[in-house]
């Protein structure tokens, strides 16, 4: 049987206690295991409390804010980490809720164990120097016109004045170019008027597209020089994900940074996203001018509504149903 979770009940009627006992027994036959009322309330993974009873109210006071609670009452309500159950508890409803919570809590506990085991508290992040990405950023900032060439891969022409580039390389070829060491690439400075000549019959696109791709692919967890993991920042706009390369974690990072400033350290801790991916995202967003530096707890883009466990579960199932190959 899979690991059992600790369930603590308080203030329930005799009938509701019997329903809890029956539900946990029936679920045990499906390998969904709970240990009921063994140990302190604060150590339980899940609480079932009748919030209208005196002993239930006392148990609530002793509970932790982050604990998942099934609150039994005559007027059930839903909130973050709270699922309301109508009194008297319906056996079928309780079984269904416990089964879903078991899966969710088990997954969370497994992820926490994995993150603790594999991610050190503070990660050393190297500096990103001497890469094609650094050169592309410099070309943009100094408004240079550049010709990039390497063996057996298409040339790239960059117009830093007009923020565009021309190449016949597809995304796969661009990624190969980004993975080359600088001594495998040759650079030629051009006169501004030369770009139009060289880019004739080529695919001319925004420089931002290639800067984003280079940031995501070239960075490999290394931070651009002169930037700090502890300086709060936020996004002034979402990256255009339908037209840019991205991974699922980028949506999470963008959603948070669109609302409030955070440092990279805080982001990695809060979201569980690996620091290397946070750094890649930061570098790419910086390169395409999406980063602004702010302090404080300003929460923009509307207030954040805490989502109940049921809602979070629903959103996960929608995401699974509309999965994107290679990303979700």
């Amino acid at each position: 049987m899979s690991d059992k979770l600790k369930l603590f009940s308080a203030g329930l009627t005799e009938q509701d206690n019997m329903v809890v006992s029956t539900a946990t027994k029936l679920l045990s036959y499906d390998d969904v295991g709970f240990i009921v009322n063994d140990g302190e309330i604060s150590k339980a993974h899940l609480l079932i409390i009748d919030e209208d009873s005196p002993s239930g109210k006392q148990a609530l006071r002793q509970s932790r804010a982050g604990q998942v609670k099934l609150l039994v009452s005559s007027k059930p309500k839903m909130a973050k980490n709270i699922i309301g159950l109508q009194r008297p508890i319906d056996l079928s409803t309780l079984k269904s809720v416990l089964k879903k919570l078991y899966a969710t809590l088990h997954a969370q506990l497994s992820t926490q164990k994995l993150n603790t085991a594999t991610q050190p508290k503070t990660e050393a992040v190297m500096e990103l120097k001497d890469s094609l990405f650094n050169i592309l950023i410099e070309t943009k900032l100094k408004k240079r016109v550049l010709h990039i060439t390497c063996d057996e891969l298409p040339d790239i022409f960059i117009d830093g004045c007009n923020q565009c580039l021309a190449t016949t390389a597809n995304e796969s070829e661009l990624e190969k170019i980004f993975s080359l060491a600088l001594d495998q690439i040759t650079f030629y400075k051009l006169k501004p008027k030369s770009f139009a000549v060289h880019s004739n019959e080529m695919n001319v696109q925004s420089l931002h597209n290639i800067l984003w791709l280079a940031g995501i692919r070239c960075s490999k967890g290394r931070l651009l020089p002169g930037h700090s993991l502890d300086k709060p920042f936020r996004l002034k706009a979402w990256p255009n994900f339908t037209r840019s390369s991205f991974i699922a974690e980028h949506l999470k990072l963008a959603a948070i940074l669109a609302k409030q400033p955070m440092s990279m350290h805080q982001l990695a801790e809060t979201t569980g996203v690996k620091m290397a991916e946070v750094v890649n995202f930061y570098n790419a967003a910086l390169a395409v001018d999406l980063i602004i530096y702010e302090q404080g707890n300003k929460n923009l883009s509307g207030k954040s509504q805490p989502r109940s466990l049921q809602q979070q579960g629903l959103f996960s199932r929608i995401a699974k149903r509309l999965s994107l190959k290679g990303i979700f």
């Binding site: 979402w238 255009n240 037209r243 949506l251 963008a254 959603a255």
Partner: peptide
Amino acid sequence: VFPVFDVDARSEDDIKVLVHA
């Protein structure tokens, strides 16, 4: 600062990215 993306309404992938965002 809401998500704003270029989309082709005929593209299943584009609309999926909208929903994921």
